[in-house]
Design a protein around this nucleic acid. Structure first.
Length: 717
DNA sequence: ATTGAGAGCCAC
DNA sequence: AAACGTGGCTCTCAAT
C-alpha cells in the first residue's frame, strides 16, 4: 500500500516537475557558463537561433550585456539567451540610431520645403541617371502608401530624402505636390534609373499616377545574375558583404515600426538616403563584374531589366475571380469532404485524418499492412484497388487539397480597391532563371499563379468585354534540347513536323512510326524516357515509373541513349564541364548556373551527382526560360503599342512555357496572328522550328481554337 | 500568437 | 543518404 502510494506520488506531474527543478538547480550550481553554452549549442537550433545565440555569447563575454540578477540562481536556458538577444537588439538599436543621426554626411539632404526641392531638381537637370527608392507604410503594393521619396543625384553625389506622409510635427511637403514635381523626372526615359527591387517602387509610384520610365539597373536582379546562390538578396546584406559598408536592415533599426511612424526626420534621412547612396555604389561594383562577361551584361540589360516593367504590368492587370462559381463549387466540395471524412473516421477511429503522424498507424491497422508513409502517389495509389478505404482516403485528400489551397482561398484574395486578385511574380524566382510566383500576399494570404490545378483555373475569368488568349510553346524544352545538342533524331523529328515521342519510340523499339501513335505504349515509354534523360533519372526510379524491372529499365535507358548518341555525348560534356568549372552556361553564355558541389572535393558523392544532374537540367530549363522572358517583353511592348492605338491588350499570366493575354472580345484574326508571331519569332532556337497552340477562352482552361472562335463558336462562360 | 521544420501535393 | 529538375502553399506539430 505504502509502495503504491509512493509510486503514485512519483508519477504525478507535480512531483515530476519538482524533481526536474531540483535537477536544474543542481545543474545551475555545478554548470559553468561555458558548459551552459556548450549544452545550448548542442541543441537542434534553427539557423537564426544559432546566429542570435552566437551574438549573445559574444555580448555576454565582452560585458556588453549581462544576466538579470533574478535569473542568476537558475540554470541558463536557451530561452533566457534569446531574451537577452532581444535586449541586446534594443540596446544596440538605440545606440546605432543615435550614431547614425550624429554621423549623417553633409551630402545627405533632408528636403522639407520648396526651396530645397527646387535646388535638388536643378541638380537632376544635369544628371544622366538617378537612384530612386520610395519609403512606404509597408510592403503590400496594393494597400500600402508612399511616405517619402529617396532620390540620389549620381554625378553630384547628393542623396536626398523627401518625407511626405510621416506622422510628425516637423513640417514636410505634401505627397501630391512632391509627386507632381518629381513626375517629369520619374517619367523621363532618357534619365536613367537605378533601384534595388525596382518592381516594388514602380508599383508604389504607379499608385500615385507615375509611370516610371528609363529603368537601367536593378541591384537585386543583377545579384541574381551574378550569384544565384546568394543566401540573401537584401540590399543591406549585399552592401555589407560586397562593399564592406556596415549597413543595418530595416528590422534591425526599426523593428516592426512603419516608416511613416518615424517622427524624427533626421533619423528618417540618415536611414533612407543611405539606401540611395549604397545602391549606386553596389551598381558600380556589379557592373564592373558583369563587364567581364559581355553576353551576361547584355542579357541582363536587354532582357532582365525590361522584364521588371513587364511583370509590373502583368501583376497590375490582375485576375477576375468568379466568386459565385467559387461559392457553389466550394460548398459542394465541403459537403463531399464532410461525407468522406465521416466514412474515414468510421473506419479509422476518431483521429485527425490530415495528420500523417496519426493517419499512418490508423490506416496500417485498418488494412492490416505496414505502411512506409501515407504518400498518395507512392504508397496509397497502388493499394487503392485492394482496399476501398484507401480509395476513399485518396478522394478525400484530393478534395481537401483542391478546397483548402485553391477554391476556398482565391475569393478572399481579391483586393477591395481594384476588385481583382493580384499575384506576385518573381522574375528570377528559380536558380535556373525561371520565374516563380507566390509570396508577398500582404496580410498573410498569397497565391501561386503557376500551380493552379485545372479545376481551380475555372475560377479565373475574363473581365466583361474581354477574351483570354493563351499560347503555349509546344515542347519548349525538347526543342531547346534539339537546338543545344543538334541531335539528329530530335532535329529531324522537329524539321519534319513529326511527333517527337512517336519518332523516338519508332527508333528505340525498331517499330514503324505509324505504330507509335498517340496512346500507344511505345510512345508513352519514349515520353517518360526523354524526360528521364534530361532530368538524369536513375534506372531504379525509371523502373518504378514504367512499372518494369530494374534490368528492363536499364536496357530501355541503354536503347534510348543508343538512339540519341549526340545527346548522351552532350550530357557527358556538361558533366565534365561542371566538374572542372563549378558552373554551366545557358544559351549563348547569357546566364550561368553555379554548382560548386560539382567541383568540391569535400562534397559527398551524392552531392556531386546531384550537381551533375542539375547541370544538364539547368542548361535546358534556363535556356527555355530565356525564350519565355524575351517573348514576354516583346508581348508587353506589343500590348503598349496596341493600347496606343486604342486597343486594350494586356498581359495576364505566364506559366513557364505558356503565356496568356487579355484581348478585347472583338479581337481580329490579324491581331491573334500578331500575338502568335511574337511567340514564334521573339527568340529562336537556331533553326529548330517552333510551334505554339493558341486557345481562346472566357474561363481559364475552357477554350475553343482560333478557327472555331472566328467561325463564331464561343467557349463556355 | 508566432515561428520553423517536415510531410504532402499542386504546377511546368 | 539518395536514387528526377525547378518552384510555392497548407497542414500538423513542437518550441517559444
Amino acid at each position: 500500500m505504502q509502495l503504491k502510494l509512493r509510486l503514485n506520488n512519483e508519477d504525478s506531474p507535480v512531483a515530476e516537475k519538482r524533481v526536474k527543478q531540483a535537477v536544474e538547480r543542481k545543474k545551475a550550481v555545478t554548470e559553468t557558463m561555458d558548459e551552459a553554452w556548450q549544452r545550448i549549442f548542442a541543441m537542434k537550433n534553427s539557423e537564426t537561433d544559432r546566429q542570435r545565440l552566437t551574438e549573445v555569447k559574444a555580448a555576454v563575454a565582452s560585458g556588453v550585456i549581462g544576466r538579470h540578477p533574478a535569473d542568476v540562481g537558475r540554470r541558463f536556458s536557451k530561452a533566457e539567451a534569446l531574451r537577452l538577444w532581444r535586449e541586446l537588439q534594443d540596446k544596440q538599436r538605440e545606440e546605432t540610431l543615435r550614431r547614425m543621426v550624429e554621423q549623417t554626411p553633409p551630402n545627405y539632404w533632408l528636403i522639407t520645403d520648396e526651396r530645397k526641392l527646387d535646388e535638388l531638381l536643378r541638380l537632376l537637370d544635369g544628371e544622366d541617371e538617378i537612384v530612386f527608392d520610395v519609403e512606404t507604410t509597408g510592403t503590400d503594393v496594393w494597400k500600402d502608401r508612399i511616405v517619402g521619396h529617396v532620390i540620389t543625384a549620381v554625378k553630384a553625389d547628393i542623396h536626398a530624402y523627401i518625407p511626405t506622409r510621416h506622422k510628425t510635427d516637423h513640417p514636410q511637403l505634401p505627397n501630391d505636390y512632391v509627386v507632381q514635381r518629381l513626375k517629369p523626372y520619374y517619367e523621363n526615359e532618357s534619365l536613367g534609373k537605378l533601384a534595388h527591387n525596382a518592381k516594388f517602387d514602380i508599383h508604389m509610384l504607379a499608385r500615385e499616377g507615375v509611370d516610371l520610365r528609363g529603368l537601367t539597373w536593378d541591384t537585386q536582379e543583377a545579384m541574381k545574375i551574378l550569384n544565384e546562390n546568394e543566401p540573401s538578396f537584401a540590399l543591406k546584406r549585399l552592401v555589407t558583404k560586397y562593399l564592406g559598408i556596415q549597413s543595418y536592415t530595416y528590422g534591425d533599426l526599426f523593428g516592426k515600426t512603419s516608416f511613416g511612424d518615424v517622427s524624427d526626420l533626421r533619423l528618417a534621412l540618415a536611414y533612407a538616403a543611405k539606401d540611395g547612396d549604397v545602391t549606386r555604389k553596389l551598381r558600380d561594383f556589379q557592373r564592373n563584374h558583369l563587364r567581364r562577361f559581355p553576353e551576361m551584361l547584355a542579357y541582363y540589360e536587354s532582357v532582365e531589366v525590361p522584364l521588371i516593367k513587364t511583370i509590373v504590368h502583368m501583376e497590375s492587370t490582375g485576375y477576375d475571380i468568379d466568386t459565385e462559381y467559387a461559392a457553389r463549387y466550394g460548398n459542394r466540395l465541403k459537403v463531399e469532404i464532410d461525407q468522406l471524412h465521416k466514412q474515414l473516421t468510421d473506419v479509422l477511429g476518431d483521429i485527425n485524418i490530415d495528420s500523417p503522424l496519426q493517419l499512418k498507424p490508423a490506416l496500417s491497422r485498418a488494412i492490416g499492412e505496414r505502411l512506409e508513409s501515407t504518400d498518395a502517389k507512392k504508397v496509397l495509389k497502388p493499394l487503392a484497388h485492394k482496399y476501398p478505404i484507401v480509395q476513399t482516403l485518396l478522394d478525400y485528400k484530393a478534395k481537401v487539397k483542391l478546397y483548402s489551397t485553391y477554391i476556398n482561398v482565391l475569393p478572399d484574395l481579391i483586393d477591395e480597391r481594384t476588385g481583382k486578385l493580384h499575384a506576385n511574380f518573381n522574375g528570377n524566382g528559380a536558380k535556373t532563371g525561371r520565374m516563380s510566383s507566390g509570396g508577398d500576399g500582404g496580410d498573410g494570404g498569397s497565391v501561386n499563379l503557376q500551380n493552379q490545378p485545372k479545376d481551380a483555373r475555372k475560377l479565373f475569368v475574363a473581365p466583361p468585354g474581354y477574351v483570354i488568349i493563351g499560347a503555349d510553346w509546344s515542347q519548349q524544352e525538347y526543342r531547346c534540347l534539339a537546338y543545344l545538342t543538334g541531335e539528329p533524331l530530335l532535329v529531324n523529328a522537329y524539321r519534319e513536323g513529326k511527333d517527337v515521342y512517336s519518332f523516338m519510340a519508332s527508333r528505340i523499339f525498331g517499330v514503324p512510326y505509324e505504330e507509335c501513335g498517340d496512346g500507344t505504349d511505345y510512345r508513352k515509354k519514349a515520353k517518360v524516357g526523354l524526360l528521364a534523360t534530361v532530368y538524369g533519372t536513375s534506372k531504379y526510379t525509371l523502373a518504378l515509373q514504367l512499372g518494369v524491372s530494374v534490368d528492363e529499365a536499364d536496357k530501355f535507358l541503354k536503347d534510348l541513349f543508343a538512339s540519341m548518341p549526340v545527346v548522351v555525348k552532350w550530357i557527358e560534356g556538361n558533366k565534365r564541364f561542371v566538374r572542372k568549372n563549378g558552373y554551366v552556361w545557358m544559351d549563348k553564355k547569357q546566364r550561368k548556373r553555379r554548382l560548386p558541389d560539382a567541383k568540391n572535393p569535400q562534397a559527398e558523392r551524392w552531392q556531386r551527382s546531384r550537381a551533375e544532374r542539375q547541370a544538364t537540367n539547368a542548361i535546358v530549363q534556363g535556356s527555355a526560360a530565356i525564350q519565355t522572358k524575351v517573348s514576354m517583353n516583346a508581348i508587353y511592348r506589343w500590348c503598349m503599342e496596341k493600347q496606343a492605338q486604342g486597343r486594350d491588350f494586356k498581359m495576364w499570366c505566364v506559366v513557364h512555357d505558356e503565356s496568356l493575354i487579355l484581348a478585347p472580345d472583338d479581337v481580329t484574326r490579324e491581331e491573334v496572328q500578331e500575338y502568335e508571331r511574337l511567340m514564334l519569332e521573339s527568340y529562336k532556337f537556331g533553326d529548330i522550328p517552333l510551334k505554339t497552340d493558341v486557345e481562346m477562352m472566357y474561363r481559364w482552361g475552357q477554350s475553343v481554337t482560333v478557327d472555331e472562335w472566328f467561325r463564331g463558336i464561343r467557349p463556355e462562360k
